[in-house]
Design a protein around this nucleic acid. Structure first.
Lengths: 118, 118
DNA sequence: CTCTTGCTTCGACATCTTTCAATATTGTAG
DNA sequence: CTACAATATTGAAAGATGTCGAAGCAAGAG
């Protein structure tokens, strides 16, 4: 089957994922690398009208309001959600471009061919 | 902790992502929340025969060999890769079940957001 | 057996994360 | 303007993470 025999280490030139792209993408994955943020995203995404008020998200967790606010900030900075203020309330919605891009990277990994240069 | 007034907000019972699932999935996303590990996965996935020797991965980074080994361990513990020893060398390959599952979660996030014009 | 090579584990340290209480900001109502 | 309600920001403490050098283990060669 596999015969990269000979000398074990030709340094494997460059993976299809460049250093800068990896840095950018890893920020997005890191944002979902926390159970609270994953559930936040899931809650936002599952709303029928595509958006949720922070005041609906906060009481769903056993965490302080500043903590939820901080997690939402990280999701926003990673490009996963958008926020809009309407009156006193702030509404969050998913940015599907970002989740789609992440899904594309993962799919290309499993199809073991070139990673999308997105 | 978080006991807000019920003035504006019905507390949004449960998102579709249960607490335990979120914990499990967040481990996988966290594993890709580092540029080194993302590039490692990408390198492993992009090999024609689906597997790479550690000795090919290590020199591609400006990091010590123990550090690469540690990152590979995290990828393995997250279920993203498998390793197999053959002689002196250890080969890593992607576990597509895991990347597929992550991609499915992300896709559902973006598709659950349906446009309601009402 | 001993030596060498490939890889993993251990111990330590600096940095980054998560979390909270306190405070600030923004918008609405009186 | 004052008061209040919803979010965000700040600052600090506890814990997790990334990294390295040193040591350990496994397998092949002599």
């Amino acid at each position: 089957m596999s015969k990269q025999e000979a000398s074990c280490c030709e340094p494997l030139s460059e993976g299809p994922l460049a250093e800068q792209q990896a840095a950018e993408l890893s920020t997005m994955f890191k944002a979902l690398g926390d159970p609270v943020r994953l559930r936040l995203l899931s809650m936002i995404a599952s709303q029928p009208d595509g958006e949720v008020c922070v005041c609906e998200l906060t009481p769903a967790f056993d965490l302080s309001q500043p903590t939820i606010s901080h997690h939402l900030k990280l999701l926003r900075q990673a490009g996963l959600v958008d926020s809009e203020r309407r009156g006193t309330w702030v509404y969050y919605r998913v940015r599907p471009e970002t989740t789609d891009r992440m899904a594309a990277v993962l799919s290309s990994v499993s199809s073991e061919r070139r990673v999308v240069t997105a």
